[in-house]
Nucleic acid binder design. Sequence first.
DNA 1: AGGTCAACCTGAGCGC
DNA 2: TGCGCTCAGGTTGACC
Length: 289
Amino acid sequence: MPELPEVETVRCGLVPVMEGALILRAEVNRPDLRWPLPDRMAERLTGATVVTLRRRSKYILVDLSSDETLLIHLGMSGRMLISGPAVTSGKVLGQFYHDHPAPQKHDHIILIMDSGARITFNDARRFGMMDLMPTHAADQHKLLSGLGPEPLGNGLNAAYLALRFAGRATPIKSALLDQHLIAGLGNIYVCEVLHRAHIAPTRLTGSLTQTEIARLVPLIRDVLTEAIAAGGSSLRDYRQTDGELGYFQHRFRVYDREGEPCPTPRCKGTITRITQSARSSYFCPICQL
DNA sequence: AGGTCAACCTGAGCGC
DNA sequence: TGCGCTCAGGTTGACC
């Protein structure tokens, strides 16, 4: 159930197991996830060494020694499970990992590394995706080329947002979810950002003042940075238990808190849930204007 | 052109 | 226990 912080957490967890390691074997248990998997996927992965793991928006990019890049999206329910003795790049991490677990329903792709580590991609809802493309052309991939700037990079600033928000008749909630505008925010963190910014999710982007737009930028960074930090710390706990990456307990101020008191100091409001473009928005009608 | 919405899937949780 | 219903953190593409 990944937004940018969860994907980054997964990427960081995979780095010590995958970077520098060779893919001994790939098991591809079905022909498609959301879309058909790439042709001859197992053969093309076999024998390749993982050079780097990168992230763009909610995508993980695995650069291989074969000059191809494996593109991974976890969709709504995609999970990565690390198992087995994880010896890689001379670092022994084996004590953090369980033995290989029994196969589970929805284990769609399994990568067996030369270290003995095994990475299992499990995705019940199958909204995830994988693709393979030449590394030099990765940026031009159809799913990546139209993405907006990274929210934690320099490309996101008040001037950029003001330009993209001007004259549009979209609710701010929808605009912040639009990956072509900003790449990486999802439903939870948009709710959290708007609450901190005291902006109602129903406000139209064109109605936002320069002050409000300027307020959004650092709050977007704060919310994501805090979530990544929380993921990083709980990641250690998960390794000690079952090797599963990316699902951590994180306290949200408004998400999934319908009916609870607004956490804003001195605010007497109650968190309310409304539906916008078929997604739940949680906000405080008193302090978010 | 810009905005909204159904569709893709399975599973969890809840009321009856 | 079980059935039926609703909802779920994403994204595309068809439609207004």
